[in-house]
Computed example of a mutant assay.
Amino acid sequence: MPALDIYHNAARQALIKDGWKITHDPLHLRWGRKDMYVDLGAKRLIIAERSEQKIAVEVKSFLGVSEMQAFRDAVGQFAIYRAVLRRTYPDFILYLAIRDVVYSSFFEEPIGQILIEDENLKLIVFDAEKEEILQWKS
């Protein structure tokens, strides 16, 4: 099992507060002989449609030596997990959960915006102290 991100529990609590039921902690993926673990799996009942919405959430802190290296690692991991998830759990949508300070310092910049568009990154922006989701970016 991989080590938890430092903000794992804050992101988990934010999802619960937002009405999500945590179904996996972590969500195990396997492709070939490779095991992978997305931090969280969750679902929420959509009343209007009477169906379930399911998400997988990878939490990233961006606390490494280099913000660009952390970004490359996160985008690479996101792409790998998304490809495997589409084949193993096609009803789940993958999101990258990041703190609001990371979003404002990096993802609102042109480099972050172009990668959101070109790589179709889906983001959950949360406040780690309040354990609240501030916005969903798809």
Rank of each mutant, 00 (worst) to 15 (best):
L4C: 03
D5L: 03
D5N: 14
I6Y: 05
Y7P: 00
Y7Q: 09
H8F: 11
H8L: 05
N9H: 05
A10W: 04
A11V: 02
R12C: 13
A14C: 07
A14Y: 01
I16S: 11
I16T: 12
D18T: 05
G19D: 07
K21S: 13
T23N: 10
H24E: 15
P26T: 06
P26R: 01
L27A: 03
H28R: 10
L29Y: 03
L29P: 04
R30G: 05
R33V: 10
D35S: 12
V38D: 05
D39G: 05
G41H: 05
L45F: 14
A48W: 07
R50D: 12
K54W: 08
A56S: 15
A56D: 09
V59M: 01
K60S: 14
G64T: 02
V65A: 15
S66V: 05
E67C: 08
M68N: 12
M68A: 10
Q69F: 07
Q69G: 04
V75S: 04
G76T: 11
G76W: 01
Q77A: 09
F78K: 00
F78L: 12
F78T: 02
A79D: 15
Y81P: 04
A83P: 01
V84E: 09
L85M: 11
T88G: 03
Y89G: 00
D91W: 02
L94I: 08
Y95K: 00
Y95Q: 02
L96E: 01
I98M: 10
R99Q: 14
Y103M: 08
Y103T: 09
S104C: 09
S104Q: 15
S105Q: 14
F106R: 11
E109Y: 04
I111P: 07
I111N: 12
Q113V: 10
I114A: 12
I114K: 15
I116V: 11
D118T: 12
E119C: 07
E119D: 13
N120A: 09
N120D: 15
L121E: 10
L123V: 09
I124W: 00
I124E: 00
V125S: 12
D127L: 05
E129L: 10
E132Q: 08
E132V: 01
I133D: 09
Q135M: 15
Q135P: 01
